[in-house]
Design a protein around this nucleic acid. Structure first.
Lengths: 127, 127
DNA sequence: TGGATATATGAAGAGTTCTGCAGATGTGCA
DNA sequence: TGCACATCTGCAGAACTCTTCATATATCCA
């Protein structure tokens, strides 16, 4: 067992060094974790999946997710702050749409994965 | 403006119906959100990125992430409970590895995205 | 202009999450 | 067997998150 510069025990210092060399910077990790975190809430996730097909207004999003309109608006504000969605205002309505290609990719992948899982294990679906 | 079965205003009832028809079930949404949620913590994310190249023991993971060994162990326990990682015990050491192909895909995609973003905006990197 | 509608916002409370601490478990070696 | 080491676990406090409620803003229409 060896010690590193901070006096921590290491089993495989070479692997640790090579992993550290490949590791994205703290800021990249934080940004990426932020994105995953936004997708990590079932209601926000449902909002975003709803937007995969195109823009929807706040009240329709509220109806789809089962959230109150206030909660929907708060959620959308957060997503807007992170530039995951964008708004188009038309009269009294606000139409939200997905505005992040990376997030769209992650959502597509996730939805495809649940469909694939359902194809193998249909009993798990829509319980 | 129309009202749906629960007396909620709807702007575009047809779109709402078609989105609802495509929407994965609540359970699938919850499971998917769980996975994203696990990736949504920067320390856990760093743990998992470290494991992309192969297994590592708890103390090496602690050194890489800068977490205490206790916090590392707690995080790994959570990941283990969700079958995202698996353990191999060798004497006193516990070696963890990624054990979920879907999570690996998400991680690869995310790392590739940060590298791509860095290529376009190098000033954002490793600040 | 005034009232109704659609959305946005701030504050506060309930609930959840993460970490450190202390102690438990299990392994290896003298 | 007894001690050191590596990891695990329950608990409790701190920090964060999400929702609701009340209110604000902005738009449309009469």
């Amino acid at each position: 067992m060896q010690l590193d510069s901070c006096n921590v025990r290491l089993v495989d210092p070479e692997r640790v060094a090579s992993v550290n060399a490949r590791m994205p910077g703290e800021e990249d990790i934080a940004d990426t974790a932020d994105v995953f975190g936004l997708l990590g809430d079932p209601r926000r996730l449902k909002l975003l999946v709803a937007l995969l097909d195109g823009e929807l207004c706040v009240c329709d999003l509220a109806a789809i997710t089962g959230l109150s309109e206030s909660a929907t608006s708060h959620a959308l504000r957060l997503l807007r702050a992170h530039r995951v969605v964008a708004v188009r205002r038309d009269g009294r309505n606000a139409f939200y749409r997905l505005d992040d290609a990376h997030v769209r990719m992650l959502l597509d992948l996730a939805v495809a994965h649940t469909e694939h899982t359902d194809a193998i294990h249909p009993e798990r679906s829509k319980g």
